[in-house]
């Protein structure tokens, strides 16, 4: 969903510095703003800190300085589960489902923070959105294929009706056909009004579904702009696309 030009900011970071060790910041001063309903793409070469940035926002990496604000609430020192309650959902790149539990149990776990009365209904909604999951609901998540796992992980994140959904490379390790499917799903979710932040290596495919993109280099924002024009940007091509595609197919 393309947000209106004056759409309110839902999530922002200010001078964010974070990293696992005090003396070794990985994110080094990131300011970013995400507006309501926007589909934002986070790009950058390997080791740029994309994953660390989204994990920091989700509450998994210690913040050294700066703030994270969502809809007027300061999340900076909130534990992860309270951020979920506040409407921030995160899908990690790996180990993003509970493999020893069934699909249904995975959804039940996530639904626990909803009021008791609405849990079953919300799970039913998700099954309606992902009919494959309903078919497999008694299967242990560890037995699912990569694409099915990703689907479950997204469904689990959506249970709480988040206002912001963050995904860390959901396409990693998936076959191209499945990647398209996952992206279509994400686009559909975004179209319902869920602000989406996506970390991706699959630059071309992702630029096609995103509204805006931010390019991160060495823990700082290097470039940011409209998704469609960014695909043609020369710096971008040199920095990122060029490195990955020596034929420079992204250039005109």
């Amino acid at each position: 969903m393309k947000p209106a030009a004056d759409a309110p900011v839902v999530l922002s970071t200010h001078g964010l510095v974070s990293g696992y060790e005090r003396d070794l910041p990985i994110i080094r001063g990131v300011d970013m703003k995400v507006t309501k309903g926007e589909f934002l793409l986070l790009l950058g070469p390997n080791g740029a800190g994309k994953s660390t940035l989204v994990k920091t926002i989700a509450g998994l990496v210690p913040v050294h300085a700066g703030t994270i604000v969502q809809e007027g609430v300061d999340l900076t020192s909130m534990p992860p589960h309270l951020r979920v309650r506040h409407g921030l959902a995160f899908v990690p790149q790996t180990e993003n489902v509970f493999t020893t539990m069934t699909i249904h149990e995975n959804l039940l776990v996530a639904a626990q923070i909803l009021p008791k009365a609405s849990r079953a209904g919300r799970i039913a909604d998700l099954y309606a959105m992902f009919p494959d999951l309903l078919r497999l609901k008694t299967l242990r998540a560890g037995q699912l294929s990569g694409g099915q796992r990703q689907m479950l992980a997204v469904a689990r994140a959506l249970i709480v009706e988040p206002s912001v959904l963050i995904l860390d490379e959901p396409s990693a390790g998936l076959a191209p056909r499945i990647v398209r499917e996952v992206f279509d799903n994400l686009k559909a979710v975004n179209a319902t009004g869920v602000t989406t932040i996506l970390v991706e290596q699959n630059v071309k495919a992702a630029l096609a579904i995103a509204d805006r993109a931010i390019v991160l280099v060495e823990g700082q924002v290097r470039l940011e702009g409209d998704a469609h024009s960014l695909g043609d940007d020369a710096v971008m091509a040199e920095l990122y696309l060029g490195a990955r595609h020596p034929s420079a197919e992204a250039r005109p």
Binding site: P80, E95, V109, Q112
Partner: peptide, 11 residues
């Protein structure tokens, strides 16, 4: 099973 994921799942 996974302490981090549990936190992210709202636990």
């Amino acid at each position: 099973e996974n302490r981090q994921l549990a936190g992210v799942a709202g636990i």
